[in-house]
C-alpha cells in the first residue's frame, strides 16, 4: 500500500484529530472543535466518523462498520472497503472480534468489552441547535450549564403528544455536566451509553466537532419526574431469530399489508440463528 498514507489521512492530520479526541475524553460530553478535512465521500455519509476511525486505527486492528445495525448496506460496505484499501486492516462483521467499530445510528446488541472503540457518525452534534440557532449562544449555554431549554423541548413533546415523542437522538447528560446529543441512535440504545466498557468517540465532519465518552461514564437521559425516560422498541419478537430484547426494524413484505419485524443488528440476529434460535417468519 504505497498510494496513500496508512488509513488515508496524513500523519499531521491524524495527530490533530487525536489531540481533539484526547481532549474530548478528558472532558466527557464537551464538543471539541477540530479542523475537519475533505474526505472522498459526501457530507452526511460519515466523514466525521471516518476521520476519527482513521486517527485511531493501527495496522493490528480489526475493523467493523455498521449502518443502522446492518453490516451489508451501502454505507457500511463502502466504508469497510475504504479502510481495507487505504489501511489494509482486517475487517469483520462479528461484533466481539472487532477492535474498532464505526457505527451509524445503532449500538450493537452484544455488550462491548474493554479495549474496543465505538466510533459514531454524527450529523448535528449540538443538542440545543433546533431550539437556539446561534452558535455563540449555545456555547454560552454549555459553559454556564443553562440547560432549561432542553426541557422546553421535552415539555413541548408531552403537551403535543401526551408523552415524550422524541425517539432518536434523545438528549443525555454526561457526568452531571454536559448535555450531549448521542447521534441519531434510537432511544432504546440510550441506556447502553452509560457505564460502557468500550471507549465511545463521536465525530461530526461537516460541523467539525469531536466529542467522547470514556469507559464507564455516567450518562443520564433527560426526563421529567412524572414522565420518566423509557427505552422503547417495537412490541414484537424478531421474525428471524425470535429475540425479544433486541431493537427491531419493521419490514413491509408485500402489498397487502404484510409486515415482519427483524433485528436491526444483523450480526446479532445471524449469530442467534446459527445457535439454533428460530422466529416465526424464518424459512
Amino acid at each position: 500500500m504505497t498510494d496513500y498514507n496508512f488509513a488515508y489521512l496524513d500523519e499531521q492530520t491524524k495527530r490533530m484529530i487525536r489531540r481533539a479526541i484526547l481532549k474530548g475524553l478528558a472532558i466527557p460530553g464537551y464538543q471539541v472543535p477540530f479542523a475537519s478535512r475533505e474526505m472522498p465521500m459526501p457530507y452526511g455519509w460519515g466523514t466525521g466518523g471516518v476521520q476519527v476511525s482513521a486517527a485511531v486505527l493501527t495496522p493490528e486492528d480489526t475493523f467493523k462498520v455498521i449502518d443502522q445495525g446492518a453490516d451489508d448496506t451501502t454505507n457500511a460496505v463502502s466504508i469497510r472497503t475504504f479502510f481495507e484499501r487505504t489501511a489494509g486492516v482486517e475487517t469483520t462483521t462479528t461484533t466481539c472480534d472487532a477492535s474498532v467499530i464505526q457505527t451509524r445510528h445503532r449500538i450493537p446488541e452484544e455488550p462491548l468489552s474493554e479495549g474496543q472503540i465505538l466510533v459514531y457518525q454524527v450529523p448535528i452534534p449540538e443538542p440545543l441547535r433546533f431550539l437556539e440557532p446561534r452558535e455563540s449562544e449555545t456555547r454560552k449555554m454549555h459553559s454556564l450549564e443553562e440547560y432549561g431549554l432542553m426541557h422546553v423541548k421535552l415539555y413541548e413533546d408531552i403537551s403535543r403528544h401526551g408523552h415524550i415523542a422524541t425517539s432518536y437522538a434523545y438528549p443525555v447528560k454526561v457526568e452531571g455536566r454536559y448535555v450531549m446529543d448521542p447521534s441519531p441512535i434510537p432511544k432504546f440504545d440510550n441506556p447502553k451509553l452509560g457505564d460502557m466498557a468500550a471507549i465511545q468517540l463521536f465525530g461530526a465532519g461537516r460541523e467539525q466537532r469531536i466529542y467522547a465518552l470514556p469507559p464507564y461514564t455516567q450518562v443520564v437521559s433527560l426526563d421529567f419526574e412524572d414522565h420518566p425516560f423509557e427505552a422503547s422498541k417495537a412490541d414484537h419478537p424478531c421474525g428471524m431469530c425470535g429475540a425479544i430484547d433486541s431493537y427491531l426494524d419493521e419490514l413491509i413484505i408485500d402489498d397487502t399489508g404484510g409486515r415482519m419485524f427483524v433485528c436491526s443488528d444483523t450480526d446479532f440476529c445471524e449469530a442467534r440463528q446459527l445457535a439454533g434460535h428460530k422466529g416465526k417468519d424464518a424459512a
Binding site: 443553562e146 432549561g148 431549554l149 426541557h151 422546553v152 415539555y155 408531552i158 403537551s159 403535543r160 412524572d226
Partner: peptide, 24 residues
C-alpha cells in the same frame, strides 16, 4: 417570546431554567 414554542412552554421555560422537573 419563543415564537416556535407553545404558550405553556413559553411560561414554563423560566421554571425549567431554575430546575423545575415535574411536568404536571
Amino acid at each position: 417570546l419563543r415564537m416556535g414554542v407553545s404558550a405553556g412552554g413559553n411560561v414554563g421555560e423560566r421554571l425549567m431554567a431554575v430546575g423545575e422537573r415535574h411536568y404536571g
